[in-house]
Design a protein around this nucleic acid. Structure first.
Lengths: 108, 108
DNA sequence: TTGACGCATCAATATTCATTGATATATTGC
DNA sequence: GCAATATATCAATGAATATTGATGCGTCAA
């Protein structure tokens, strides 16, 4: 259920996939203000319960959120560390030294 | 063909989707060193040509790469600004003021 | 002008993903 | 225990995506 042991590229691809859906992005945005139970996300987003559950699971499997049961409620929260790593990944892609034509490397 | 006028969430979802595939991540990683022609990406990645073309198009439609023809070659390059915005987006998701139980907001 | 090369596109297929409605499980208050 | 609530899961369906092989189109060099 965890993605911690996967190769970096695979893990990154799964993170990005988890964020590639508008509903899930909305969930993450809401959770960025603090943890929330499913019922509130449901009211706020206006999505069917099973649909929300589906997307929460996707985020959880990808390691972007954590969940915690308290009585009848389950609270979800963002995994700050994962988000940090995602930002770092995107930030690390910089155009490099060879910017400009690259005949040499390309077609010798 | 451009995504510039879309709502922020929609645009972000498309960016993340473009990065949600291992082949495309590998392409972006290679392009981060400078622009490359398709034939070199092909050699390096070892993917069928039509497959590579498919993924390059996905990246281009999402606005993450640009292309430029020079003679028989087409050179692709990362769009630094888009990557910067993606990193900013991920970095902006911070756990917030209400971290901890949030009964109040949740189930009044 | 012909042939080779670099690349894009198309058609067909298989796979993955999202949505909906129904059902199951756990927890609480009565 | 019973009913109500919160959430997860399942089954079915449709939509989107990825892969492969074939074909087309522009460009260059002989």
């Amino acid at each position: 259920m965890t993605t911690a042991t996967l190769p970096a590229t695979t893990r990154a691809a799964r993170w990005f996939h988890a964020l590639s859906d508008e509903t899930r992005l909305e969930i993450v945005r809401l959770l960025s203000h603090g943890e929330r139970c499913v019922c509130e996300l449901q009211k706020t987003i206006g999505a069917a319960q099973s649909r929300l559950s589906f997307h929460l699971r996707a985020l959880k499997v990808a390691g972007l959120v954590t969940d915690r049961r308290e009585g009848r409620w389950v609270y979800y929260a963002v995994n700050r560390e994962a988000l940090r790593q995602i930002a770092a990944f995107a930030g690390a892609v910089k155009p490099g030294k060879h910017a400009g034509s690259c005949r040499m490397a390309c077609c010798p």
